[in-house]
Amino acid sequence: MTTTTSATPAPAAPTNKLGFTKQDYVGSKSTLCAGCGHDAITAQLINAAFESNLEGHRVTKYSGIGCSSKTPAYFINQGWGFNSVHGRMPSIATGASLANRTLINIGVSGDGDSMSIGMGQFVHAVRRNVPMIYIIEDNGVYGLTKGQFSATADKGSHLKSGAVNDFPPIDPCTLAIELGCGFVARSFSGNPKQLNAILKAAFAYQGTVVIDVISPCVTFNNHDASTRSYKHVKDHDFPLHDLGFIQYSEVEQVDIPAGETEVVTFPDGSKVAIKAIHEGYEPTDRFGAMKAIHESMAKGEFLTGLLYINPTQPPLPEVLNLVDEPLTTLGEDLLKPSPAELDKIMQALM
């Protein structure tokens, strides 16, 4: 963690501002299938956390059930993880985020965990603006139970077995925008640069962040008939804009390509610079974002990038007007009314 002046033969691993190396942000070894898109997402979570100088002990990681839900064990071992029950990760994140508002909450879910069994909790967590990064590792298939359709599977898509999906998909991004989410992004597990930038922006955001990451399943949904196979996504991934994240303390913007740039200021003073590829695209325009996503979907494309942002919405602990310090640290002196107060309450009941 710390560098010393005494000579060491091997070059020290680079450290971030807190003195941590990237190694300090890794987790246990992944047990997912080799080449799984989810592991690429995990890798970017590690990179982004390192580059964003996250304090590992403040990180909490939540999940439900499924392949995606195993991944919180694979990053940031310094943080606390909670692998709960199927579709109920949002309420777990809600309770802990209220108990201790200084925590940095990362929820990892899948398309089955969030858009089927967990739809109710997803919707309400977004609606309440629970302070958390909500990542949906979206492969359109139930991997852990060996390949059934999920609710994000495209109508008409095929399973390996040949079964055809008869129902239209649910799109987490348009749904999240509809629900008032203030940070909605989509990315692709095969586009590390974009995902990294989105995650770093997400770490600076204070409410609910929804990131739908198209993450092809190498085992059950990677045949050419699938719209979530590597081949399909590579051909149809349509980046909306490049995105560079700048910590407030840094003077210069880095790696911002030419073109129109939108700088969005976060409540903590951090800024995100967004370059829209589309002429006139306005990432703070809710209706415009919906239109762009729908138009893209109509063409069978995945519109990726930071699709919608509204940094002004107060997160849940603020809405509830909670004290600044974690509720977990409040002492009995503050929490327990006095004998005189009990007496007053009793008198009123006489």
């Binding site: 909490t60 939540y62 909670f82 709960s84 109920r88 949002p90 309420s91 777990i92 994140a93 809600t94 309770g95 802990a96 209220l98 108990a99 201790n100 925590l103 909790q121 974690p326 509720l327 977990t328």
Partner: peptide, 11 residues
Amino acid sequence: GVVLSAGWAGA
């Protein structure tokens, strides 16, 4: 879920 995770976190 809220009750158990808040308890887990120390509330």
